[in-house]
């Protein structure tokens, strides 16, 4: 199997854990995997991406344009920013809830993410819009969204990995006290993904 998965969002949203879980699940499923993160100078609030490349024909650490099978976007503008990486007929799973740039208060541009969602709709047939506020409302915290969106992707059948393989890594990698909530988040996301897969 060869599969390129891009995760993108804003620093602090938890893209790194999600990419680690995918990479570990791919490895334990017997695949070769490579990944890379671009973090840059910003610790918080900057654009971040994680590139996960499953299969033994990936040479570049970063996914080339037009190669990503799926983009997991934790923020609408970040999905647009990375859209050129998407394969023809690739799938984008995007969070509807925008993160305003930290400089927005100084210079209001009125960014609210809706233009981004419209643009994504016009560009990609396989778009799945999820609502982090709703999902996290059910979970009682925004910190589990990363695992929930991963659940959506697995349910949608886009990662090429089984739910069991990912759950095994949640078991192994997530500290005890957050484990149960992460499992819950994963199932919640997976249910959403399942409905899209069925369509």
């Amino acid at each position: 199997m060869n599969r390129d998965i891009l995760l993108c969002g804003v620093g602090g949203q938890g893209t790194v854990l999600a990419s680690k879980l995918i990479a570990a699940a791919a490895m334990s499923s017997g695949y070769t995997v490579h990944s890379a993160e671009t973090i840059g100078m910003a610790q918080r609030g900057g654009s971040v991406t994680s590139h996960v490349r499953i299969g033994d024909r990936a040479y570049s650490p970063l996914i080339p344009e037009g190669n990503a099978d799926v983009i997991l976007a934790f923020e609408p503008a970040e999905a647009v920013r990375n859209l050129t990486l998407l394969k023809k007929n690739g799938v984008v799973i995007v969070n509807r809830v925008p993160v305003k740039p930290v400089t927005e208060s100084l210079q209001d541009t009125g960014y609210d993410g809706s233009r981004m969602i419209e643009y994504l709709q016009s560009k990609c047939a396989g778009l799945v819009v999820v609502d982090a506020e709703k999902i996290c409302g059910e979970l009682g915290s925004s910190r589990y969204f990363n695992v929930a969106i991963l659940g959506v992707a697995v349910g949608r059948g886009q990662i090429g990995l089984s739910a069991e393989a990912v759950l095994r890594e949640i078991e192994a990698k997530v500290p005890e006290k957050y484990r149960q909530m992460n499992q819950k988040a994963f199932y919640l996301g997976k249910r959403i993904g399942d409905t899209y897969a069925a369509q």
Binding site: A42, G46, L83, V102, T109, Y119
Partner: peptide
Amino acid sequence: SKENVDSRDMPRLPVRPPVLCA
């Protein structure tokens, strides 16, 4: 032979420059 999304009509994206943490 690359097939990727034509991004020429991309809406203006918010810039996220590095800043000192809160």
